[in-house]
Amino acid sequence: MGAMRKTEKPLQRIRASEMPWEPLGKHGLRRRLLGLDEATGHVTSIVGIPENWRGGGVAHYHDAVEEVFILEGSVTLDDVHYWKEGDYFYRPAHIVHGHDEKSHIGAMALTRSDGVLVLNLVHEPAEPKEYPLPESNDPRGHVFSLPVADVAAGPDAAFPAEWGIKPLSADPVSGARTLIAEIPAGWQGTAPVLGTDWEAFILAGSVDGTAGDFVPQDYTSGEADTPLLGATGSTKGCTVLVWQFGRQ
């Protein structure tokens, strides 16, 4: 997907702590909107889930992709598997889920979707846990639950040699992918130009660059020719969640 514009300008720094909370849905969720592409409904947000939260309790599916990284707390959608801090999942469109949504301790989640998440209800699900409908055919596949701590960081030709890259999911057809970039303490150099539109969210540490400093829970986006974060150095190191859009 090309020509994605989710901030007013490339490398605009969005500080999550400065964004207002707004209600999300009818069951007590709220969100801080980070980036939105008006043309497609493609949205990136931080979603807050309160303690002892209970969702609608009806299985459903969406016609859009959901991608989530749990920042803190835990949540379950089937009362069996619990996603917890540091877990990532990629759910394609047309995956039935949400059979028994709840969170005992509350949670904070970084979420991203490629369109409006309309609820298509499934009152009699065929299985007691997440399952794909026949029309679900995302080349990236269904990444049900991936503890990011278990993913090894390694080199990637698209990034500086000193950086460690943790691949989380990828589309072999379009080239779209999600990854975590670990920038070591003391790094100085030139930020990579990825050749695709991208988004980034700082998980830990900080990075300096042409757009100023980025610190935890800062978000920005860029176009194909925008250097990632405009980064030129990191004194104490930085961990960044990066989304790359694919080719049209």
Score class of each variant (00 low, 15 high):
Thr40Asn: 06
Ala64Glu: 11
Pro50Asn: 04
Trp53Ala: 03
Glu38Cys: 03
Pro23Leu: 02
Val58Met: 09
Val47Met: 11
Gly56Leu: 07
Arg54His: 13
Ser17Pro: 03
Val58Glu: 09
Asn52Met: 14
Gly25Trp: 06
Glu38Asp: 08
Leu29Ser: 00
Glu18Ser: 08
His60Thr: 10
Val65Thr: 09
Gly28His: 00
Val65Tyr: 12
Gly41Val: 06
Val65Met: 15
Leu71Ile: 15
Glu66Val: 05
Leu33Ile: 08
Gly56His: 14
Ser74Lys: 13
Glu66Pro: 01
Pro50Leu: 03
Lys26Phe: 00
His27Gln: 11
Leu71His: 08
Leu33Ala: 09
Glu67Ser: 10
Gly25Ser: 14
Ile49Gln: 00
Ser74Ala: 14
Arg31Gly: 03
Phe69Arg: 01
Pro23Gln: 05
His60Arg: 15
Glu22Cys: 01
Val65Pro: 02
Val43Gln: 10
Val43Arg: 15
Ala16Pro: 11
Gly73Gln: 13
Leu29Arg: 00
His42Asp: 13
Glu38Val: 12
Val68Phe: 11
Gly25Ile: 10
Asp37Ser: 09
Trp53Asn: 04
Pro20Glu: 03
Arg54Thr: 14
Ser17Gln: 13
Ala39Asn: 12
Gly25Cys: 10
Tyr61Gln: 08
Leu29Cys: 02
Trp53Thr: 02
Gly48Cys: 12
Leu34Ser: 14
Thr44Asp: 07
Gly73Cys: 12
Glu38Trp: 12
His42Tyr: 14
Ala64Arg: 00
Met19Leu: 09
Leu36Phe: 15
Thr44Pro: 02
Ala39Ile: 07
Arg32Gln: 15
Phe69Asn: 04
Gly35His: 02
Leu71Ser: 06
Tyr61Val: 04
Thr44Trp: 12
Pro20Lys: 05
Arg54Asp: 04
Gly55Glu: 09
Ala39Gln: 13
Pro50His: 03
Ala16Gly: 14
Ile46Gly: 01
Glu22Asp: 06
Leu71Asp: 05
Arg32His: 06
Leu29Pro: 01
Gly55Leu: 02
Glu22Lys: 04
Asn52His: 14
Ala39Leu: 12
Gly41Arg: 05
Ser74Phe: 04
Val47Glu: 11
